[in-house]
Nucleic acid binder design. Sequence first.
DNA 1: TTATTAAATTGTAATGATTCCAATTTAATA
DNA 2: TATTAAATTGGAATCATTACAATTTAATAA
Lengths: 145, 145
Amino acid sequence: MDEYVDLLKTNDLKITHHRLAILKYLDDHRTHPTAEEIYQHLKKTNPGLSRTTIYNNLETLSDSHIIQRLTICPTEHRYDFNIGMHHHFICKECGDIIDVDFQCPTVSSIKKHVADQGHRIEEVHGYFKGICKDCLEKKRREQSE
Amino acid sequence: MDEYVDLLKTNDLKITHHRLAILKYLDDHRTHPTAEEIYQHLKKTNPGLSRTTIYNNLETLSDSHIIQRLTICPTEHRYDFNIGMHHHFICKECGDIIDVDFQCPTVSSIKKHVADQGHRIEEVHGYFKGICKDCLEKKRREQSE
DNA sequence: TTATTAAATTGTAATGATTCCAATTTAATA
DNA sequence: TATTAAATTGGAATCATTACAATTTAATAA
Ligand SMILES: [Mn+2]
Ligand SMILES: [Mn+2]
Ligand SMILES: [Zn+2]
Ligand SMILES: [Zn+2]
């Protein structure tokens, strides 16, 4: 928990109950949840919580690079406590976002290539879209009925 | 123009004026435009055009893999006539999306890794976020005033 | 501890891209 | 030329997100 306090302090952000709760939720739920999911969960133990506070803080935390905002799904943002460079797989069927545990050694070369064109890179995102294992199996079961 | 007709025929889609116009627009404007941009442009020469038609067709064409839908910007979809695997750079300042002309040789390995986990990959997306060359220069000029 | 103040939080209203839907039109086929 | 499934239309609805003004609070220093 002091870890979260440090993260906020380092970035000159005030230590608030909500922020700590959001960070803890993201740290405990590595499923890349949406703002709404976080809101629904934290509201249980904090009825006075406003949805806007969640949105405000997710933006603040993303801007400070304490967490990572994923723009992958067509309709909503997803958030990731893990800010290290890693790729994702998103299932078109169930919407699940899974971490891809495979470092891409080429990233640095491509970054250099883009930087050489004069652009400044601040974020790297790689993701795959398709049907996840579970959804594939579910489909197979349905067909063999 | 027959190229567009062929694309539609091959995918069992009816040949309509709107579809051909959308394809031509995307082919001529490799700036990854939004649905709204396409609508505003085509409306000029076709006043009766409905916004819904644009949305319907962009979805149909994307589903048939005739064009590519980019889910990169936080607020809107962008469309690409180029369906070949290529990465993008998006500027946080002006919103421009630029093609990255650098093939990533690692993609196949990562795809294999993901497929080995049992997932089925249908799309690959890689993009960088940052500030583009033009916006960087604009900023520099503003600061040195 | 208390006063001060900038930042955080709140609730409601607004925004804006996208989708829904029922009626109408049209491309493809025979 | 008649038939019909698909495409188009326009207006309403959806829904994630943002804007905003009022209120509260965390951090700081007296
Ligand atoms: Mn992740
Ligand atoms: Mn492109
Ligand atoms: Zn799935
Ligand atoms: Zn730019």
